[in-house]
Design a protein around this nucleic acid. Structure first.
Length: 467
RNA sequence: GGCCCCGUCGUCUAGCGGUUAGGAUCCAUGGUUUUCAUCCAUGUUACAGGAGUUCGAUUCUCCUCGGGGUCACCA
């Protein structure tokens, strides 16, 4: 059975990069009928917060990514780590190192001065004497001094490291007894049965260390897939400082989960020329071996396009439901089908859609100056007057076509082009020159509101012209 | 700096020894639309450079250059 995981450290919100690796892990587990588990890496008490954990879970919920089983918290597993540390100590695979932080710093400085690689010199590796007074020891693991460490990576291929280049006897437990990252990751992944590790390639250089732990403990080494980074426009690793990396900010901006997921799955992964993927298709088609080797630059142009695509293809009832999150109550509006059919073609985000709905439903209180200048000229006011009068005399105005008929009769009677009525009427109704079809707008707001807006426009013009 | 990874249009990518180097997005132009948007059509733009292997390299190898990641008692 395929078991994958997402293992964030709760130091802040869930960000785009994390979400993508989580998505990849999720898809791979689902595709194989396996498990996708969540582990919170909260061993750094100073930097972690419960709110951050909450935020991450909330983001998962919004996106519909469901983890299997209980959430594992590393902070609750101290006894487990202690047990394995003791085991390594007993087996002579780890040892206590009494070197003080000062001594270590001194060693590093000397090595740097000599332009050597900074590493622990192993002075307590085979220590049998009397330990110095007053120093709480750290526990170090005996790493191989030479030889080759090979990572068989599912994305990058076979990567080989020389032990002497990258390893030293690294710390697995601090002076206060708490275990360190590379140790707990390996222990947890092994104990939780994780056999497919999909993570960012910034972890690639940690992998040999973790392999050392796996081997010391006799655990089976999982398959690794190191996913290339997402870079910012400057070409650097995407970080929280780059802005707009909080997943939940995308909800606020009006992106749909579908669009965001579809956008992210195509960053570093592809399936031929296909751009649009439903969740079902992602699950069916995803395979980590098809992940790209090179980093990609984060750029949301395509996200906008995808979001617009999904909005256009969402049923109106669902759209009305989603809009309630943005303060637009449309679920019981009797013309919502007509309105949303017209508007969803022109919105890039749900937030935009919400704004556009508002702009139609509320009576304009001001008119765009440029639009006024362009539209209210010639006999525009006369046209509006004629239209208003005709409207007033017409009953049974319900559908767009009913209003269109009235407009048509004005055009015919006055022997003008459609633009001659369209432009002033558009400004009267919406306060500006762009927007959906006027017959649709009028059908949505109704006869009474239409007449009010027309009258308002006429009044506004007579006032300005008399001044 | 050591180690490791990467290098096809501005961006996301297809390609897996022989292609007019394909798609998407963006941008531009035209069409549709009373407007804007949508939609449709058309167009501009890419194999980092140099050797080698080969009848033939975007594709394989090496070098150079460029970019990135990582080097903690952080995760």
């Amino acid at each position: 059975m395929v078991v994958t995981r997402f293992a964030p450290s709760p130091t802040g919100y869930l960000h785009i990069g994390g979400l993508r690796t989580a998505l990849f892990s999720y898809l791979w587990a689902r595709k194989n009928g396996g498990k996708f588990v969540l582990r919170i890496e909260d061993t750094d008490k100073a930097r972690n917060s419960e709110e951050a954990t909450e935020a991450i879970l909330k983001a998962f919920e919004w996106l519909g990514l469901e983890a299997d089983g209980e959430i594992t918290y590393q902070s609750k597993r101290d006894d487990i780590y202690a047990k394995y540390i003791k085991q390594l100590l007993d087996e002579g695979k780890a040892y206590k190192c009494y070197m003080s932080k000062e001594e270590l710093a001194e060693l590093r400085e000397k090595q740097m001065a000599n332009k050597e690689r900074t590493k622990y010199d192993g002075r307590y590796r085979d220590f049998t004497g009397t330990p110095p007074e007053g120093v709480e020891p750290v526990i170090r693991i005996k790493a191989p001094l030479s030889g080759e460490i090979v990572v068989e990576d599912g994305v990058k291929g076979r990567i080989s490291f020389q032990a002497e280049d990258i390893l030293d006897d690294f710390v697995i437990a601090r002076a206060d007894g708490s275990p360190t990252y590379n140790f707990v990751v390996a222990v947890d992944d092994a104990l939780m049965g994780i056999n497919e590790v999909i993570r960012g390639d910034d972890h690639l250089s940690n992998t040999p260390k973790q392999i050392v732990v796996y081997e010391a403990l006799g655990f089976e080494i999982p398959n690794f897939y190191h996913v290339p980074m997402i870079h910012n426009s400057a070409g650097k690793k995407l970080s929280k400082r780059d802005g707009a990396t909080d997943v939940m900010a995308y909800k606020e901006m009006g992106y749909t989960p579908q669009a965001l997921l579809n956008f992210l799955v195509r960053l570093g992964w592809s399936h031929g020329d296909q751009e649009i993927f439903s969740m079902e298709e992602m699950i069916a088609l995803f395979n980590p071996k098809d992940i790209n080797k090179s980093a990609s630059i984060y750029n949301t142009e395509k996200l906008d396009w995808l979001n617009a695509h999904y909005i256009k293809n969402t049923p109106n009832a669902e759209l009305a439901e989603m809009l309630t999150e943005y303060g637009v109550m449309l679920t019981s509006h009797d013309k919502k089908e007509i309105l949303l059919d017209a508007l969803k073609e022109r919105a890039k985000t749900l937030k935009e859609l919400a704004t556009q709905v508002e702009e139609i439903v509320t009576t304009p209180t001001s008119y765009d100056a440029k639009a006024v200048k362009k539209a209210f000229k010639g006999n525009a006011i006369e046209v509006l007057n004629t239209f208003g009068a005709k409207l007033s005399a017409t009953d049974e105005l319900h559908l767009p076509v009913d209003y269109h008929t009235v407009m048509e009769s004005v055009v015919n009677e006055m022997e003008i082009g459609f633009g001659k009525i369209g432009q002033p009427l558009r400004v009267a109704l919406l306060g500006k020159l762009s927007g959906p079809g006027l017959d649709i707008v009028m059908a949505v707001i109704g006869k009474e509101e239409t007449m009010l807006r027309v009258a308002n426009a006429i009044t506004s013009q007579s006032v300005t012209s008399s001044v």
